[in-house]
């Protein structure tokens, strides 16, 4: 059991929540991720930015082994969460994904009621002992996702009947309900209008207190607004990573500079 944050004995500083070393990803013949080394800090929001097809979503999907579901995808290298290799044969991806939740680009509520959407995760992971437990988890998760007030009177209506932004917050609530430690978000606002986007961004900021959040985004403004650290990907390479402020004001790499000033993208 490992309940204390892992401490690097020598440096006396907090070890990163997630650390990736020499990660390579292949899609069949395509080399999608090349030699990526990256540490992701606990309880911060880390944004992955970069042009389309740069591998940022692919890398994100390595962090909870969602790439396992794609037959032709192969991952090499070493990714550790709390110091444990998540690609170790002994690791069950099911348990891993309970610890590392994910929110997708398009809101994808299940064709079930709002309540059942949230309760789905806790049920399969056996997180509740009674109906009351489950009710509490659902209410809690919805509250944390800022959706509770809007839906509390219609929990048994289908989740697909909500608006786009509400659906996405439902998906976030659904992820929170399994009490993950890390939440991965793959362009969570790309299908939403600006008002809904603002609400989600606000929510991400609140969630930062309790969760490690990694967000892939196309929008540099969004990265600047919600994240503390930013990683820039280009053509499967991690170009640079650092404090968000640093990256946006004073990038070290030429390519980052070009990207954030809109010269390509």
């Amino acid at each position: 059991m490992n309940e204390m944050p892992v401490v690097d004995a020598e440096a006396g500083t907090l070890l990163p929540k997630i650390s990736a070393k020499k990660v390579q990803v292949f899609y069949g013949e395509t080399h999608a991720i090349k030699d990526v080394d990256l540490n992701i800090a606990d309880r911060t929001v880390t944004a992955f930015i970069g042009p389309s097809g740069c591998g940022k979503s692919t890398f994100l999907r390595c962090l909870n082994r969602m790439n396992d579901t794609i037959d032709i995808c192969r991952v090499e290298g070493d990714i550790r969460i709390d110091g444990e290799d998540i690609y170790d044969p002994k690791v069950d991806p099911v348990q891993l994904r309970a610890k590392v939740g994910m929110v997708f680009q398009k809101p994808n509520p299940f064709p079930k009621s709002i309540y059942d959407n949230i309760a789905y995760g806790p049920r399969i992971h056996g997180l509740s002992r009674s109906k009351a437990d489950l009710d509490e988890i659902v209410a809690n998760s919805l509250q944390k996702a800022g959706l509770y007030e809007e839906v509390k009177d219609r929990l048994d209506e289908p989740g697909t009947g909500l608006s786009g932004g509400q659906q996405q917050r439902l998906c976030i609530a659904r992820a929170i309900a399994v009490s993950p430690e890390v939440i991965l978000m793959d362009e969570p606002c790309s299908a939403l209008d600006p008002i809904a986007t603002a609400k989600i961004e606000e929510l991400i900021d609140e969630l930062r207190e309790n969760y490690t959040i990694v967000i892939v985004t196309h929008s540099m403004q969004q990265a600047a607004r919600v994240s503390q650290r930013t990683a820039f990907f280009h053509l499967g390479n991690l170009v640079e990573e650092g404090e968000t402020k640093e990256i946006f004001t004073n990038p070290t790499d030429r390519r980052t500079q070009d990207y954030i000033t809109g010269r390509f993208g």
Partner: peptide, 18 residues
């Protein structure tokens, strides 16, 4: 710290143990 729902006991076990 995280204020997780009491009813949802977080499984803090190692990933290496199923």
């Amino acid at each position: 710290q995280t204020g997780r729902a009491v009813a949802a006991p977080a499984r803090k076990g190692s990933l290496l143990e199923v």
